[in-house]
Amino acid sequence: MDITPATAATPPPLPGGSQPAPAEQSKAAARAGDRIFLALSRGSGILLLVIMAAIAVFLTVRAASALSHNEGNFFTTFEWNANANPPVFGIAVLAFGTIVSSLIAMLIAVPVAIGIALFISHYAPRKLAAPLSYVIDLLAAVPSIVYGLWGALFLVPHLTGLYGWLNDYLGWTGIFAYHDGAARSLFTIGILLAIMILPIVTSVSREVFLQAPKMHEEAALALGATRWEVIRMSVLPFGRSGIISASMLGLGRALGETMAVATVLSPSFEIGKSLLDPGGGTFAQNIASSFKESGEIGKDALIASGLVLFVLTLLVNGAARMIIARRKEYTA
C-alpha cells in the first residue's frame, strides 16, 4: 500500500488506466480504492469469524432453553422423549452410537487408506498414479445421500451372509452376536462411514508420503533394503504425524455424517451388547430422523444434541489442524 505515493510521482501511461487524471487526483482515488478494497476483504474475513461465533452462541442459547425443561439427565438418560410432557431426553445412547460407529470406521478406513496412499505414492506404475488418485477423489464427490441409498438397498442385504458367519464363529463374544433381520446396525454404519472417509484420509496421507525425503529412501535402497523396508524405515516414521492428523480429519467427518447413517440405521434408544444387531443411534442421525415430529422443545433438544456434536467435531478437527501446523513448522 505504501508504495503508491512514492511511485505515482512519475506516471507512465498505463494500458489499464483509461483516464489521464492529474497525479494528485489519481493518488486520492487510489487511496480511496485501496481503503475500500481492504475494508471489503477484511470485512469478509471478520464475517467468517462472526459466523463461527454466531453458530456457537445461537446453538448454546437454544440448547439452554431446552435443558431448562429437561426432566431427565442430559448426559445419562437412555431415552429421547423431548416432545412428551414433561420432556425427558439424554444423549447417552447417541454419544455411544456416534463414537462406536466412528471408531469402527476409523479401524477399517485408516489401514486401508494408508495402503492406498502407499500404493499411489510408491507402488503404482507412474502413469497410473494420477488417474488412480482421481478415482479416489471421485469417491469423495459422491453425495452422502447416495451412499445412504446404496448402503440401505445394496450393502445391507449383502452383509447378512457375512454377519451370519461372524455370528457362527465369534458370536460367543457377544459383540458379534447376530440375530436374524436386516443388517441395519452400528457395524454396517461403520463400514459405510469407512468408505466415505477413505478419500480424505487417503489424500492427506498421500501428500505426506510424497514429501518423505528422497535421500533417505535412496540411501536405504543403496544399502540393499527391499521396497517394504524402505517404506518401514524412511517413509512411515516421517509420515507418522501426518497419518495421525489424517485419521483425525476422517474421524471428524465420520462423527458428523448424517444422511447416510439416517438412511441405513434402524434406530432404537438402547445400548445393545451386539454391534451387528440393529439399534442404537448417532447425534446427526437422530436430528435428521426425529426432526419432522418435533415440537418447539423437541427442536431445542435436538439443537442441544447438535451443540454436543459441534463441540466434539471442533475438538477433533482442531487437534488435527494443530498437529498439521506443528509439523509444518517443524519441517520448515
Partner: peptide, 28 residues
C-alpha cells in the same frame, strides 16, 4: 493476529458437520 485467527477458523469451519450448519440456520 486477525489473519491467523481467520486461517485457523477457516480450517475449523471446513470440519463443521453439515447438520450443525442446518441447526444454526434453524435456530437463527
Amino acid at each position: 493476529r486477525l489473519a491467523k485467527a481467520v486461517t485457523f477458523f477457516v480450517d475449523v469451519m471446513t470440519g463443521i458437520p453439515s447438520i450443525v450448519a442446518g441447526l444454526f440456520i434453524l435456530s437463527f
